[in-house]
Amino acid sequence: MLQGNYFVYITTNPGKTVLYTGITNDLETRLQQHFANRGKKESFAGRYYCYKLLYYERFSNVQQAIEREKEIKDLSREKKEALIKAFNPQWKFLLP
């Protein structure tokens, strides 16, 4: 079982109309990749300009992170919004 730093995160577009859930072991680099891919039709995050971080959870176990990502992806939009609001009440964009 792999141990390290793993992040499950939720990004949005500048208008906060779309939510994207992902997993990474390097959050800053992954956000830079999302930013670089904005507008590119090949990926969901790119197509909808989802590069603004709203929420994240850190895990040391990759399996737990994968399971949590799946849980969050299965949530309704309303439940994802509640999760974000509990962590980031004002929906401020995190990390530049």
Rank of each mutant, 00 (worst) to 15 (best):
L2K: 12
L2Q: 04
Q3F: 08
G4T: 12
G4Q: 09
N5L: 10
N5C: 06
V8E: 14
V8M: 12
Y9Q: 00
I10E: 11
I10M: 10
T11N: 06
T11F: 03
N13T: 09
G15E: 09
T17P: 13
T17L: 13
V18P: 00
L19Y: 15
Y20S: 03
Y20H: 09
Y20M: 00
T21D: 06
T21P: 01
T24R: 00
T24D: 06
T24P: 00
T24S: 01
N25G: 13
N25D: 10
D26R: 03
D26S: 03
L27N: 11
E28M: 12
T29G: 11
T29R: 14
T29D: 05
R30G: 02
R30D: 02
Q32N: 08
Q32G: 14
Q33I: 03
H34D: 00
H34K: 01
A36G: 06
A36R: 06
A36T: 10
R38F: 00
R38A: 15
K41F: 14
E42H: 04
E42M: 09
F44V: 08
F44Y: 05
A45S: 10
R47Y: 05
R47K: 12
C50G: 08
K52A: 11
L54C: 03
Y55M: 05
E57V: 09
E57R: 08
R58K: 11
F59L: 11
F59G: 01
F59A: 12
F59T: 08
S60H: 14
S60F: 13
Q63F: 05
Q63L: 06
Q64P: 00
I66L: 07
E67I: 10
K70C: 00
E71L: 14
E71T: 05
K73S: 09
K73M: 13
L75T: 02
E78I: 06
E78R: 14
K80C: 03
K80M: 03
K80D: 01
K85C: 14
A86C: 04
A86P: 01
F87H: 14
N88W: 07
N88C: 12
P89T: 03
W91D: 14
K92P: 05
K92L: 12
F93C: 07
F93T: 08
P96W: 07
